[in-house]
Amino acid sequence: MNTILVTGGAGFIASHIVDKLIKNGDKVVIVDNLSTGKLENLNKEAIFYNVDILDNKLKEVFEIERPDYVIHHAAQIDVQKSIRLPIDDARINVSGTINILECCRKYNVKKIIYASSAAVYGEPKYLGIDEEHTVAPISYYGISKHTPEHYIKVYSELYDIKYTILRYSNAYGIRQDPKGEGGVISIFVDKLLEEDNPVIFGTGEQTRDFIYVNDIVDANILAISKGDNHIINIGTGVAISINELFNSMKEIFESKVKPVYKEARKGDILHSYFNISKAEKILGWKPRYPLEDGLRETIYFYKEIFQHRSFAASTKEE
């Protein structure tokens, strides 16, 4: 049995990873300060520490638990917030990762798996983006996700800590918070449930590569034993415009709601999708969920919750 420490394990993606690790029979330790993570996302079979990755108490967690592997997802992930608060963004994403790496060094962690982002590439010079593409972020978030990659590589060289860096495209799925992490799909779900008009920034013709959370989980599980000292893109390799995305979701909802268009935001990339051939070659990974399947699974989940709450509220009023 491996002991695996997951940072951000009460958050959207990492909580699903925790569930899968526990199902696989691993001992799982979660470190999360609950700034965006939620108690209801915590797996009861995991050991939970309410600790910030910047806190000195992190060393105590490593001292007690002695993890074999670390899966690092705790981060500031809001592009617009990074532009408003660049110091906070760097402190959490860069200094927080260094603190984790110091603990990995001191307590002989075998490997760290780091959740990076498509934001490191900036405005693409070609599509699909492969791992050899120039790194030229256009937001502070992109910088603060890329900088730890350098630290991870040097720690690996100096202290023989293996790593796999997974650069995610646009993640979506169950447990994504429209008010917190702000993924466009979760925002659209929220608005369509409320029959409210969602905002689309720019023309809506910008394209993205949307990857379902269960596929990301699979990549992380494979990276425990594969992909040593590699950077690997995790996406679908398929682009869809925001307008097409909204129309597909609207159809599943059978809704007549229309979007409101506003000026494009600074730091937002126009077009992006990945080349994922390296993931297949190195990890033996391919996405299992076409966008429509992932959307249906996500939407049906939230529809059931919404209907249950609406029923409970109406019963209470009576």
Rank of each mutant, 00 (worst) to 15 (best):
L5E: 00
G11C: 09
I13L: 15
D19K: 14
K20L: 10
L21R: 06
I22R: 07
I22L: 15
K27P: 06
V31K: 00
L34E: 09
G37A: 04
G37H: 00
K38M: 12
E45D: 14
F48V: 13
Y49W: 09
V51N: 09
K59Y: 14
F62W: 01
E65R: 04
R66N: 15
Y69N: 07
Y69M: 09
D78M: 08
Q80N: 14
L85C: 08
R91Y: 03
R91S: 09
S95E: 12
T97P: 03
I100S: 00
L101G: 03
C103R: 01
Y107S: 01
I113H: 01
Y114G: 01
S117M: 03
G122W: 07
G122Y: 07
P124L: 11
Y126C: 05
Y126L: 06
G128L: 08
E131P: 06
E131C: 08
H133A: 15
T134W: 04
P137V: 05
I138P: 12
Y141K: 13
I143M: 10
T147V: 10
P148W: 09
E149Q: 03
E149S: 00
H150L: 14
Y151K: 02
I152E: 05
S156L: 07
L158Q: 14
Y159G: 10
T164I: 05
Y172N: 12
I174T: 03
R175L: 08
D177N: 14
G180W: 04
G180Q: 10
I185Y: 03
I185E: 02
S186M: 10
I187L: 06
L193I: 13
E194I: 05
D196R: 12
N197Y: 07
Q206I: 08
T207F: 01
N214W: 02
D215Y: 07
D215E: 08
K226W: 05
D228E: 15
I234R: 09
I234Q: 05
A239N: 07
S241Q: 14
F253N: 04
P259M: 05
Y261S: 04
Y261A: 04
K262G: 11
E263I: 11
A264Q: 06
K266D: 12
I269G: 08
H271Y: 13
S272T: 11
Y273A: 00
F274K: 03
F274L: 09
K278G: 06
E280Q: 13
P287A: 10
Y289E: 00
P290A: 11
E292L: 15
E297M: 07
Y300M: 11
F301Y: 10
E304C: 08
R309Q: 15
S310M: 10
A313H: 10
S314C: 05
S314Y: 09
